[in-house]
């Protein structure tokens, strides 16, 4: 702070409190809605104070079935989301760290070509090539499978660049020493590079877990079978009931459950999260 101006401090606090309130408001409304009975949403406005139906709503959602308008039990959706998020995060890290190792510590024909091939994936988000990608998945019989849900999302230019950057900043002497001591490339990778990139791996894992958990378009494309539905992709189908009023308390409780894991990760691993975010944008 440059000078002591009280009114500016008060203004800053006011702005921040207002900001926090605006940011938290939608989630507050969702949490409150999930504590009410379905009848609370038939007339008037959304309640803003907690109700007394919390236990019933959440047990109803977990039990599934017609009463909560859940065609897919939420346990199944949560499990699928967890599998998808963990597999994508783990797969991306393994694949990228190996590629970065190859690009930094070896010199071989087509190295620059390989680098550019990886770079190009940045320019081809799923959204711009939806139909042909769907055709590939369907020709490979990967629709409605965990392989189809996760493997195609595992290529990652950002993660590869991140590890390349990490490896480039590691002192050359490490590798020279390892070679003098007779370590082969894989031993060097396992015993020196991996332990030294631990924090970067953890930070990236946090970001990629959120990325995988929040996937929306991809699960919609690849899965038609209810048993592979993820929670983020499933909420919309719940809100889309045609012939009756949506059960807002159930929908909002599912929304809360869909937010909980990634938000918890951000709050409890804030340091790693911020590091991962900043690192992966360099």
């Amino acid at each position: 702070m440059v000078e002591n101006q009280r009114w500016l401090d008060y203004l800053a606090h006011a702005v921040l409190i207002l900001g926090v309130a605006v940011v938290a408001f939608p989630v507050y409304v969702a949490v409150i809605a999930s504590t009410h009975e379905p009848t609370a949403f038939t007339s008037g406005t959304i309640p803003l104070l907690p109700g007394d139906n919390t236990v019933e709503t959440y047990t109803g959602v977990f039990a599934g079935g017609v009463a909560s308008q859940m065609s897919v039990p939420i346990g199944v959706m949560l499990t699928n989301s967890m599998i998808m998020a963990l597999a994508i995060a783990f797969g991306k890290i393994v694949i990228s760290i190996l590629s970065a190792f190859a690009i930094v510590y070896f010199r071989f024909p087509f190295r620059v070509l390989a680098f550019w091939m990886i770079f190009i994936t940045l320019m081809l988000p799923v959204e711009v090539r939806i139909v042909p990608t769907f055709e590939v998945i369907s020709n490979l019989n990967m629709l409605n499978s965990y392989t189809g849900l996760t493997v195609p999302l595992m290529a990652s230019a950002t993660a590869t660049f991140l590890f390349r950057q990490v490896f480039l900043t590691m002192p050359d002497e490490l590798m020279e020493a390892a070679r003098i001591d007779g370590a082969g490339p894989m031993k060097f990778f396992r015993d020196i590079l991996l332990p030294m990139s631990q924090t970067n791996i953890a930070a990236l894992f946090v970001i990629l877990f959120i990325y995988g958990w929040n996937q929306y378009l991809w699960p919609i494309l690849v899965t038609t079978d209810d048993s592979y539905q993820t929670i983020v992709a499933g909420i919309k189908r719940m809100a889309d009931v045609v012939d009756s009023e949506p059960l807002w308390n159930s929908i909002m409780s599912v929304t809360v459950l869909a937010m909980l894991p990634p938000v918890a990760v951000v709050i409890f691993m804030q340091r790693l999260f911020v590091k991962g975010l900043v690192d992966s944008e360099k």
């Binding site: 959120i210 992709a233 909420i235 919309k236 869909a258 951000v266 999260f273």
Partner: peptide, 9 residues
């Protein structure tokens, strides 16, 4: 924390 909320949500 809203970073962690999915766009669909």
């Amino acid at each position: 924390w809203p970073y962690a909320v999915a766009p669909a949500v």
